[in-house]
């Protein structure tokens, strides 16, 4: 089978120089693959390093050893664990999306501009980008009177929706979602699940980390329990 992403024997350890140079290894010999249009859900006890896997793929963390093969549109099959930073930057802009648990934005920037950011980065002109941005805000159920307000004034659930919108709007080929449905009510959760499924139908591969086995888990193609040590 042709996989979009293949993680093989991934290790990630941290050397904590400030605490006597202690080493901790949250990701230990992890291997899995994801095909285009597939949704893999990773679950397991908190604090075991599930998010670390996502961050290794996104290269927020530098993997200690192992390979992460990604089938890129622009660069062919490349190892994300070793690829040049410039390639990673480009992939993040066009092919790989990451949605963290927390929305981190500039204060005083409107929700509309916040959600449009990935499009601005791609060089889309302002009016065209905002057209798409408004469409996503509508889908996410953000009330129109909030569009010009800063997301920093929003509730947790609204912030999370903006955060997800930012990951989806650039139409990446691989989406890494960290607890996408946490802090969402049932209705909104369903909106998000629908968004994920729509993205899958377009061929986007999704790796999510979640405890929500009854909600999100039902719709995932595969579930993988992160081994606890």
């Amino acid at each position: 089978m042709n996989y979009l992403l293949e993680v093989k024997n991934l290790y990630k350890s941290f050397t904590l120089h400030l605490i006597d140079g202690r080493t901790i290894t949250p990701v230990c010999d992890v291997s899995f693959s994801v095909a285009a249009g597939e949704h893999l859900l990773i679950h397991g006890r908190s604090g075991m390093g599930k998010t670390s896997i996502l961050k290794c793929i996104y290269r927020t963390y530098v993997p200690t050893s192992g390979t992460i093969w990604f089938q890129s549109h622009q660069f062919g099959r490349i190892d994300l664990s070793r690829a040049d930073e410039r390639i990673i930057i480009d992939l993040r802009e066009r092919e790989i999306g990451f949605c963290s648990q927390f929305l981190r934005v500039l204060p005083r920037v409107s929700a509309l501009d916040t959600i449009c950011e990935p499009l601005y980065r791609q060089g889309l002109d302002r009016t065209a980008a905002q057209e798409i941005g408004r469409e996503w805000l509508r889908r996410l159920g953000i009330a129109a009177e909030l569009w010009q307000a800063s997301p920093m004034t929003f509730s947790g659930g609204e912030q999370q929706r903006i955060n997800l919108g930012r990951a989806f709007i650039a139409r990446p080929r691989l989406l890494l979602l960290d607890e996408p449905t946490a802090s969402l009510d049932e209705t909104t959760k369903q909106v998000v699940i629908n968004m994920i499924r729509a993205a899958q139908r377009e061929g986007t591969a999704i790796i999510s980390v979640s405890h929500d086995l009854t909600g999100l888990g039902v719709y995932a193609d595969r579930q993988w329990t992160f081994p606890s040590r």
């Binding site: 120089h17 961050k55 927020t60 963390y61 530098v62 930073e85 990673i88 930057i89």
Partner: peptide, 13 residues
């Protein structure tokens, strides 16, 4: 390195 990597996985003491 990448900014988020420097901030979240800094290597140098």
């Amino acid at each position: 390195g990448l900014t988020d990597q420097i901030l979240e996985d800094p290597q140098h003491p």
